[in-house]
Simulated assay, not measured.
Amino acid sequence: MRDNAARAMWERYEPVHQLVYFAPEVREAMDGLGMRGYWMGYFALRAAPLGPVPAPVVTSCFYVFHPDRAASALPEAWSLAGPQQVIEARERAVDAAMTSLYGPDVIGSAELAEAADLAWEAAGAADTAGRVLGAANQTLPRPDQPHVRLWQAATTLREHRGDGHVAVLVGRGLGPVEALVLKSATGETDAEFQQRIRQWDTEAWQAAQDALRGRGWIDEEERLTTAGAAAHAQMEADTDAAAAAPWHALGAEATARLAHLLEPLARRVLDSGLVPPANPVGLTDGTWRAAG
C-alpha cells in the first residue's frame, strides 16, 4: 500500500524545488559563473552538494542520464566555479526567483516562515543511509532567509525520495533506459523528450523496449500491459514507502499543516508556466492527494 503522505507531500514540494531548473534567474546566475549552456549549469547546480566529484559519480547518482551527458559538463564546470561557489549562487538565484514569482508579501509572510521551519524539520528527519544526494543536501547549512530555507528543505526531501526511487529500480533490475521507457509508457512523460534530454541513442532505447517486452511489461505499441501497470504501481508504492520517514517524524498534524501551506506555493509554480508540461519527472497540475 502506498504511503499517501509521502506521495501527497512530494506533489507539493516538488514544484517549489523545480524552480531551480526553469527559473530564468537561475540560468542567469549560472551564466554569470561562466557555465556554458543549460546542461553544464544543471549538473553543477545539482551535484554541487557532493563536492567536486567526477562525471561517473554524478552519472551513478542521477541514474537516468547517458554517461556522456554528465561528462560534457564535469569536471570542467569545477574549473569555472567550485561547488561552494555554485551553492552560494544557487541560493542567491532561488532568492531572486522566488521573490519574483511570489512577491514580497508572500516571501515575508508568517505562513511562508512557518512552512520553511516545518519543511526544514522534516528534511532533517530524513533517513539518509545509502542515500548520497539526500545526505549531501541535508548537511548544508540552514539558510537564514525563510524562502531559501524552504527551497533547500524541499530539495533535500526530493533528493532523499529520488535516492530511494533509484534503490527501488536497482532492486527490480530496471536499468536507466528501461526506467525511462517504462515511465514514458505510463503516459506521465513523452518518450522522445526523455530519450533526447537524457541523451540515449535509438539502439539503447530499442534495446530497453525489447527488454520490457520480454518481461511482458509493454506491448508492441510501447503501452503498459496489465503486468507492466502492476509492476509500475508496486515500484511507486515502494518509492513512497521509502520516502515516508520524514513525515512519520513530523507527525500527521504538522504534515497536514505543511501540505496546506505548500499548496498555494506549488500551484503558483504550476500556473506560472515555468515548468513545461512535458517535464522529466512527470509533474502535472492534477488534483492534490490527501496528505494524511
Rank of each mutant, 00 (worst) to 15 (best):
T139V: 12
E236S: 01
D271I: 07
G286E: 09
G124K: 06
V53A: 05
P52I: 09
G292I: 14
T226Y: 06
A208G: 00
W217T: 01
A291M: 08
Y102I: 08
T155W: 07
R289C: 00
R196E: 02
E221A: 10
L118W: 02
T287L: 12
P104F: 06
G108L: 07
Q195D: 04
W120R: 15
F22R: 00
E192T: 14
S184Q: 04
A237S: 08
E76Q: 12
A136T: 05
P277T: 13
T226E: 15
I197D: 03
V132H: 03
A126N: 11
R268T: 15
T202N: 01
V181D: 02
L261E: 01
A256V: 15
V86T: 08
L50H: 12
W217P: 00
A5I: 15
E220T: 12
G124N: 09
P176H: 04
E222S: 15
R268H: 14
L118T: 10
W205E: 04
A179L: 03
T225F: 02
Q234F: 00
E25T: 05
W78C: 12
M235T: 00
V64T: 12
E114M: 06
P15D: 04
P24L: 07
G216D: 09
N4S: 13
E221H: 08
A254P: 03
A211K: 12
A115L: 13
A243S: 12
P277D: 09
A113M: 10
P83N: 07
L262P: 02
Q18H: 14
D271V: 10
T226V: 15
S100M: 06
F43Q: 07
F65V: 07
V53M: 01
